[in-house]
């Protein structure tokens, strides 16, 4: 059944376009186009010096209703704790098993409930971003052994650590990062996250905190003096 539907659809397309199957040279050309990854129109907001891009990332993220804090390397845990106390939120957190977040456990100011996949009851989740996209203040989160995707969605409060060196200009730069991170093809889930969840479905009144997180807090980790991330 499915086999015949497949033929019906593909042959239908060819008949409608008044041609048969594409000749091999054309197919090879199309495959080359796919492999080239050529960019089209890249807006000016996706370009600039790295310092400009970092500044723009923080501005655009705030414009999308995220909150941001820039901290020196090693003080991620303190930054997370400060944010939670300021907002009178519980300091029990579910943290991704990413080794770059190990420091959150060490300091003893936070109660790390679990490392890894959250349950429906975890109120605060801490994750690490693969990149920050300056163009729109977007975080790129890639699923993997140390980064469960449900951590981006289930907890009420979503805290994301992103390194300054991982801030890129536009979507195209983010794809380059993703391809370098996973050369065999994208991980199962890649989330581009811009602000907390929201809905305008009741009388077009925007409400933050729909089914996903009600708050998104970004902890930006500064580069070390020699320009490299810790």
């Amino acid at each position: 059944m499915t086999g015949s539907d497949r033929d019906t659809v593909l042959n239908g397309i060819r008949a409608a376009l008044k041609r048969g199957p594409l000749p091999d040279p054309t197919r090879a050309e199309l495959d080359r186009r796919m492999a080239d990854h050529a960019a089209h129109v890249v807006p000016a907001i996706a370009r600039g010096t790295h310092a400009e891009l970092v500044r723009r990332f923080l501005e655009t993220a705030e414009a999308a209703a995220a909150t941001v804090a820039t901290v020196p390397p090693g003080s991620e845990g303190a930054a997370v704790e400060r944010f939670l106390r300021q907002h009178n939120l519980p300091t029990r957190v579910a943290v991704a098993a990413d080794p770059r977040l190990d420091g959150l456990e060490d300091r003893g100011v936070l109660t790390v409930e679990r490392r890894g996949t959250p349950t429906g009851d975890d109120l605060v989740g801490v994750a690490h971003a693969l990149a920050g996209i300056a163009e729109t203040g977007t975080l790129m989160m890639a699923s993997g052994p140390h980064s469960p995707s449900t951590l981006n969605m289930l907890p009420d409060t979503h805290i994301v650590v992103v390194r300054q060196t991982d801030v890129v200009g536009g979507l195209e730069d983010a794809w380059a990062r993703l391809r370098a991170h996973a050369p065999e093809g994208p991980p199962r889930t890649v989330h581009l996250i811009t602000g907390p969840s929201r809905t305008g479905d009741i009388e077009q009144t925007i409400q933050l905190g729909a089914h996903g997180p009600r708050r998104l807090h970004i902890v930006m980790v500064e580069d070390t003096a020699d320009g490299a991330a810790v």
């Binding site: 999308a64 996949t117 993997g144 994208p186 991980p187 989330h191």
Partner: peptide, 22 residues
């Protein structure tokens, strides 16, 4: 009128053997 929606999600296949969820 948003520059990006809150979530743009790319789903590729089922979870990988080493993935904790999905």
């Amino acid at each position: 009128g948003q520059a990006m929606s809150s979530y743009t999600t790319f789903s590729t296949g089922p979870r990988r053997p080493e993935d904790p969820d999905g």
